[in-house]
């Protein structure tokens, strides 16, 4: 699975304003709500924060993959946030993070959840300038193109 195939322009924020983990998650969820991708913002925020409290989803390379299993959604929802200033996502590693892949997976499909996580990890692990290219994007569709270009390098 490729990450770009899971992305829609209405689930991408190219210039997040948030300054910490809580406000970043709220900003991404609110964006999904405004685009009618989700219904219950508060429930989803609560599930994501519960997960962060069990252990940060910061994965290194200036990236984090906040995620939760959510009842009542049919298909996996993936959102991407880019923060030009970056935020300290994890108090443990204190690394400034710029790239966030939010994954909301239905309770019923642990395998799809793993595949999206794997696709995100494969991109994040790449050497090279993918992150600086993403941070230069002005439009959500540009983000999808940059990710697609890097993912197709694998083939």
């Amino acid at each position: 699975m490729k990450l770009y195939t899971c992305l829609k322009p209405d689930a991408i924020i190219v210039d997040c304003k948030a300054t910490n983990t809580e406000s970043l998650l709220k900003e991404l969820i609110h964006h999904l709500k405004m685009n009618n991708r989700i219904s219950d913002e508060d429930y989803i925020y609560k599930k994501l924060m519960e997960r962060e409290k069990m252990g940060s989803t910061s994965v290194g390379n200036h990236s984090a993959v906040p995620h939760a299993r959510i009842k009542d959604i049919k298909d996996v929802i993936v959102a991407v946030g880019l923060s030009r200033n970056g935020i300290i996502y994890s108090e443990i590693d204190k690394e400034v993070s710029h790239f966030f892949v939010l994954i909301l997976a239905p309770n019923s499909s642990p395998i799809v959840h793993l595949q999206v996580l794997a696709a995100a990890a494969t991109l994040i692990k790449k050497p090279g300038k993918w992150l600086s290219e993403l941070l230069e994007c002005q439009h959500p569709s540009d983000v999808i193109h940059v990710i697609q270009n890097y993912e197709e390098d694998d083939e």
Partner: peptide, 13 residues
């Protein structure tokens, strides 16, 4: 030893 490396496997039950 690499979290990202392990995640790329999507290793399932």
């Amino acid at each position: 030893k690499s979290l990202l490396g392990i995640l790329t496997l999507a290793a399932s039950v």
